[in-house]
C-alpha cells in the first residue's frame, strides 16, 4: 500500500507531522498553487499500514488518517512492480 496526501483537500496544518508514531511526515517547504505547503513524506516505507495492511488484511495504526482534519490522507494500492526505495536502518 502507498500513502497519498490529497493536495486539493490538505490545508497544511501539519498535524500529521505531530501525530505519526513513525514520523513519516515532515513539514512541506514548497507552496503549491493554492499557497499551501503540503507536508512531505519522509521514508514512508516505515509506515506499518503501508507495509503490512495487505498481509494482515485490516487497517493498522491509521492515526494520521483519523487525525487529518481535512480528510486528505488515504492509502492506495501500488502498481505491480513499482520501484521501491530501500532504506536500511541500523
Amino acid at each position: 500500500m502507498k500513502l497519498v496526501i490529497d493536495e486539493i483537500r490538505c490545508k497544511g496544518c501539519n498535524l500529521c507531522t505531530k501525530v505519526c508514531p513513525y514520523k513519516i511526515f515532515r513539514e512541506g517547504k514548497k507552496l503549491n498553487r493554492r499557497g499551501i505547503a503540503v507536508p512531505e513524506l519522509d521514508r514512508p516505507e516505515r509506515c506499518t499500514n503501508c507495509r503490512l495492511r495487505n498481509l494482515y488484511g485490516r487497517q493498522l495504526c491509521g492515526v494520521c488518517q483519523l487525525t487529518c482534519p481535512d480528510q486528505a490522507i488515504h492509502w492506495i494500492d501500488e502498481e505491480p512492480y513499482e520501484p521501491h526505495k530501500v532504506a536500511i536502518e541500523y
Binding site: 490545508k11 496544518c13 498535524l15 499551501i36 483519523l66 487529518c68 481535512d70 480528510q71
Partner: peptide, 10 residues
C-alpha cells in the same frame, strides 16, 4: 487549517 472538528468527524 488545523481545526480539530474534522478529526472528530473522522
Amino acid at each position: 487549517a488545523g481545526c480539530g472538528n474534522g478529526t472528530i468527524i473522522n
